[in-house]
Design a protein around this nucleic acid. Structure first.
Lengths: 188, 188
DNA sequence: TTCAGATTTTGACAATTATCAAAGGATAGA
DNA sequence: TCTATCCTTTGATAATTGTCAAAATCTGAA
């Protein structure tokens, strides 16, 4: 199994040879430069992207201010979740923070695969469940943690992100201003 | 289709007659009094509950303080999500805020149904996806909204909750203290 | 109906975090 | 190498929200 996407997802559930080749047949490999926009504002997200190499940021504008919603790196997925799931436009923008190698599947292809392969439908369920847990973890962190606790948490769980992503975006990701994060970093 | 659970879930995806009866065969109807604990602290959540009538609260203790994580009413589900999905103990407690009529499915039964019925696996995927959207909505709200915005949002989206749930729990659900919510309510 | 206990409100004050502004550093292209 | 631009830091101040305490109100059981 030479495809990194198949390697990662088969850790969620084993896939039959047929399902693997059906998936491989619709996967598109992309090499894109830093700054490339995967999903434009207020459009329908038609693709889900698996990151072989690189880094993506999902963000939106709230009252004119740039809010970093999500960051994804190697082995993870980048997508405007609500838009992909509902096939409705969404304010979320997905862009590359680094030159990246991605594997893309279209919504249409994925729906067809779900219809035809029970094990791929299962994979979809497990990936959605896993995504739910990730969002819940971030929600918990925001729910009653101080700015310092949130920063410490990120340092513990994902220290490399702090080196790869500009401070202002990390701050926004953590729900605080760049000034607050800068001060926190100074006093640790 | 006289089962309220089947009526609601069939809005996500149509189920074959066989899948419907297989689901009906493992569903257990429960009538429980207010205050009943569905999921105890630090135990594995073995059941997912569909609410025909009533109201549940999911909460946990953070630094000795009671944090209301989620509220579910008629037509929704109550579960300690991460515990149910991972089958690991979790700090979340699920209790009834009102006398309730519930339909329960065990994790084991559900896994078997997923194996045997592609359309139930699909239902699971769609319910997980839908849950993901709900958590994401709450996350967005917490991310860069003020306490007043969050309260207004709840009044707009779910005004009945405010009448059915004690103020202190609503405040915690919204990520603020009871005093702050009380003051907000006074000045509107 | 009455009362004990729980919940909500109000007040005074403190802590946290945001905002605005300006200075200091880093970075990439000419 | 130089410079324009962007990013980060620092300072002063303001706004928001939390904490602690006490009073007011509500609720349910005897």
């Amino acid at each position: 199994m030479s495809n990194p996407f198949l390697e990662v997802v088969s850790q969620f559930t084993p896939l039959s040879a047929g399902s693997q080749s059906a998936l491989a047949a619709v996967l598109k490999r992309l090499e894109l430069e830093k700054g490339h926009v995967l999903v434009r504002q207020n459009t329908v997200c038609q693709w889900v992207y698996f990151i072989e190499k690189g880094l993506t940021r999902t963000y939106y504008y709230k009252d004119g201010k740039d809010v970093t919603d999500w960051l994804s790196a190697e082995g993870q997925f980048a997508v405007s979740i609500s838009s992909f799931m509902t096939q409705q436009p969404d304010r979320r923008i997905v862009e590359l923070l680094e030159p990246s190698v991605l594997w893309a599947i279209s919504h249409t292809d994925l729906e067809n695969l779900y219809q035809q392969h029970h094990d791929i439908e299962r994979l979809g369920r497990l990936l959605a469940s896993h995504g739910l847990l990730l969002v819940q973890q971030r929600f918990d962190e925001l729910h009653f943690a101080t700015a310092l606790e949130r920063y410490r948490n990120l340092m513990a769980l994902n220290p490399t992100l702090i080196q790869r992503v500009p401070l202002g975006m990390i701050a926004s990701y953590l729900g605080m201003t760049a000034e607050t994060l800068s001060r926190m970093r100074a006093q640790i």
